[in-house]
Design a protein around this nucleic acid. Structure first.
Length: 551
DNA sequence: GAACAATTCTCGT
DNA sequence: GAATTGTTC
């Protein structure tokens, strides 16, 4: 649960920020926070029917945020949690039991027909599984989004990446909800980033220099700062009863030495300090300083900060509290998303939905399962996602504040959909063999909502003049329509010609879009059922109209 | 006033 | 995971 109350305590040093500040830079993402939020929208589906399309809404949520970053020219680096730390297992187990209970209660309540109450239970029951992370990883692979699975804590991995230069794979900031990043000494953190890219920023160096609201960390160094966090209580070590963030700050601020704080604390009769607290304290501090992380360059485990002699003493040679050492091959297989860090089994072997497509050489998959270094793994593993049919759940809206505020013209589409399309997939197809070639197109996961492509039109079939057309050859595609100007529409989201397609447009163009749609309303009875049920409504809050067209 | 315990919320319509 | 609310010291 991070450091209790730390975020509120540090509030004076946290300022509003927009993600566009990091345009052109690499930014790390704590995958867990977005996975968890995303799962909230489909907790019942995840509990009752994890294979369903609806249960994949958490992926849509995640990719929306990834796409938002890309839109602002920020390079996302997604970091997943790996194995849990030995010293944390008690809390983990406790949470697990509570979730299981909620799951049972949820299913029971659903049986009784009380859906609303059941959803409440499912929300409490939902947990992020390695399988869910793996599903996302496959999408990230197919989207060429950089990711890494930390050997243990994602927080430590993120803090490590933040120490590296960009050309060494480093990141300029971290997006997370977890206050532990502060304790890890991360240089720049963005908390509570919303769907428009607004968030709250914490800059460590600035904090260590500024005096604000009677708080000063000027005499603090990183070690004292992290010491203060540990003192206030963290996942690895609960605080001494009666010590919270404020008293932890006062103590460190007064003594300016961890040793002194601990010894005075022990003598203070108001507090009962456990006998082994001092020892545990230094070990915990060692975790924050020297946690095991994965080094992409050497493809092996490293320490967040190099181990110094003094810490070897504190640890008494017991490096396993940092999590067991892993062989480089194992560390790499975990980091690259081939090996489940909890069960240590290969993901591909566990995958339930191996594609039925016949031309796939399954022996190749088996080779991959040895988690070797096949370069083409991405392509093949993504095939395992071919399972569910397209559904409305896969239609995703792309929120862009600038469009909502009318700040930006949409003449370039505003959205970098082009980047989500495979090279070569955007050209207009004319081969008569295409219909029979459909199998080849399945190299792209069908339920990947971020890789929608225009399907070839049937041979010789003329396109309706009024139909919207998509120009996918553009770097940033826009939807074209004979009755609308080129800058009218931001994005088309479903491109299956038998499916409804959704788009967004600026408020000023709503009228013209609507007039075109009205013209065609007489034909509506000929349209697929899903389309007839759609209304073209303006979102009152965003001012964006979402419209549906047949392609 | 500070810490603690219990409870609510995270999405998206 | 955090934020919030009510309770305890």
């Amino acid at each position: 649960m991070g450091i209790p109350n730390l975020l509120r305590f540090m509030k004076p040093f946290i300022e509003p920020v927009h993600i566009k500040k990091y345009a052109g830079q690499r930014v790390g993402i704590d995958a867990y926070s977005w996975l968890h939020k995303g799962a909230y929208s489909c907790s019942m589906e995840l509990c009752m029917n994890p294979k369903s399309a609806g249960a994949r809404r958490y992926i849509s949520y995640f990719m929306h945020h990834v796409n938002l970053l890309r839109h602002h020219k920020v390079v996302p680096v997604v970091v997943f949690d790996g194995g849990s730390m030995p010293c944390k297992s008690a809390t983990d187990e406790d949470r697990h039991k509570k979730r299981e209970l909620s799951l049972v209660l949820g299913k029971e309540t659903l049986k009784q027909g009380n859906t609303a109450a059941a959803i409440d239970f499912f929300r409490k029951a939902v947990q992020i599984t390695p399988s869910m992370a793996y599903q996302l990883i496959q999408i990230l692979r197919s989207e060429n989004v950089e990711f890494v699975v930390a050997p243990y804590e994602a927080d430590a991995q993120l803090a490590y990446l933040a120490t590296l230069d960009a050309d060494q794979g480093g990141i300029a900031a971290v997006i997370t909800e977890d206050s532990d990043l502060i304790a890890y000494g991360c240089t720049a953190i963005i908390f509570k980033m919303d769907r428009f890219g607004k968030g709250e920023e914490f800059i460590m160096d600035k904090t260590l220099m500024t005096v604000k609201d009677g708080l000063s960390f000027q005499d603090f160094d990183q070690n004292l700062f992290t010491g203060m966090c540990v003192l206030a209580g963290c996942d690895f070590l609960p605080s001494v009863s009666g010590i919270g963030t404020k008293r932890a700050y006062s103590l460190v601020s007064k003594h300016k030495s961890i040793d002194l704080v601990l010894s005075t604390l022990k003598l203070d009769k108001r507090y009962s300090v456990p006998d082994d607290y001092t020892g545990s304290f230094w070990k915990t501090l060692a975790v924050f300083n020297h946690a095991r992380v994965y080094d992409v360059k050497s493809k092996s485990l490293k320490h967040l900060k190099p181990l110094e002699e003094q810490y070897l003493d504190y640890l008494a040679g017991d490096l396993d509290i940092l999590g067991p050492e892993l062989a480089p091959s194992v560390a790499r297989a975990i980091a690259e998303g081939h090996l489940n860090p909890v069960t240590m089994e290969t993901f591909d072997k566990l995958s339930r939905t191996i594609s039925p497509i016949k031309f796939i050489d399954t022996s190749a998959l088996n080779v991959v399962n040895q988690y070797g270094s096949q370069e083409n793994l991405t392509q093949e593993s993504s095939i395992t996602l071919c399972s569910s049919q397209e559904s409305e759940d896969d239609i995703v809206a792309f929120p862009v504040d600038e469009i909502a505020n009318g700040e930006r013209k949409c003449n370039k589409g505003g959205l970098a959909l082009g980047k989500f399309l495979l090279p070569g997939a955007t050209k207009k197809h004319s081969s008569p063999a295409l219909e029979h070639n459909k199998v080849k197109q399945k190299n792209i996961p069908e339920n990947n909502p971020f890789k929608k492509r225009k399907l070839p039109t049937d041979q010789g079939q003329a396109q309706d003049q009024n139909d919207l057309q998509i120009d996918l050859d553009d770097e940033e595609p826009v939807v074209l329509c004979s009755s609308l100007s080129r800058e009218s529409v931001g994005r088309v989201e479903s491109q299956d010609r038998n499916e409804v397609s959704a788009g967004l447009c600026r408020p000023s163009l709503q009228e013209s879009v609507e007039s075109v749609l009205n013209e065609r309303s007489s034909k509506r009875q000929n349209l697929p059922k899903a389309f007839r049920n759609k209304t073209n409504k303006v979102n009152e809050r965003s001012g964006i109209m979402k419209f549906f067209v047949r392609l």
